Amino acid sequence: MKLTTLGYALIGLVQAEPCSGYALRRVFETTPMGTYSSSPGSIYPALARLVAAGFLEKRAPAGGGKKLFHVTTRGRDAMNAWLRTPVTEEEVTRSVDLVLLRFAFLENVDEPGVTQSFLASFESALSNRIEQIEAYLESPAGRALGRHGRLAVENGLQGLMTQRQWAATSKKEFRS
């Protein structure tokens, strides 16, 4: 089974703390993770697929009570591999939110250097994308943009520059 973004989000939340399907739905309803659907029609089938594929398991707490989802070894391994994957230019171009979701889940990785490597790859991918956009703006096609188009591209460029500065600053924080 190829994991989806929702699958990784669910595994990451369960890895941080075993919880029920309802509790997971509440996270999507009440936090910035609201970009994912909190409907039972998406969450519960996704959880069922993750259990069937062996990424999660459902079991009752030691003292009894409502069953909670727990991450399996397979789920933990898949999550750790995803978190350690270097950030690509495609991710920077198409899904920076997904990059930041990965970064947030790095909180649960207890290995020196993993966060630094992630941030370095993020900064590098951002730098490459910034160079591409700057070159485009200097090209005949970029110079032919109308005022609105050019300003829209410059807005995106400034956003990428801000993210690159954040990555550089965050790397310094994790050196200490």
Rank of each mutant, 00 (worst) to 15 (best):
M1E: 15
M1G: 15
T4A: 10
L6R: 09
L6N: 03
L10P: 00
I11F: 07
L13S: 06
Q15T: 12
Y22W: 08
R25T: 05
R25E: 06
F28R: 01
E29D: 15
T30Y: 03
T31H: 01
P32S: 14
M33P: 03
G34D: 15
T35K: 11
Y36T: 05
Y36N: 01
S37N: 02
S37Q: 06
S38D: 11
S39Q: 13
S39E: 11
I43W: 00
Y44M: 06
A46F: 01
L47C: 04
R49A: 09
V51I: 07
A52C: 02
A53Y: 02
G54W: 03
K58F: 09
R59I: 00
G65Y: 06
K67V: 05
L68W: 00
F69S: 03
T73F: 10
D77I: 13
A78D: 10
N80A: 14
L83Y: 08
L83D: 01
L83V: 07
T85M: 10
P86Q: 07
V87W: 00
V92E: 02
V99W: 01
V99E: 05
V99L: 06
R102A: 02
N108D: 15
V109H: 03
D110G: 04
D110Y: 09
V114F: 13
S117P: 00
S117Y: 04
L119I: 10
L119C: 11
A120R: 08
F122V: 08
E123H: 12
S127W: 07
I130Q: 06
I133A: 05
E134I: 08
A135E: 12
Y136R: 04
L137I: 12
E138P: 08
P140T: 09
R143Q: 15
G146S: 13
G149N: 02
V153A: 08
V153C: 03
E154P: 00
E154C: 08
L157A: 10
L157C: 10
L157G: 07
T162N: 14
T162P: 04
W166F: 11
A167Q: 03
K172G: 14
R175Y: 14
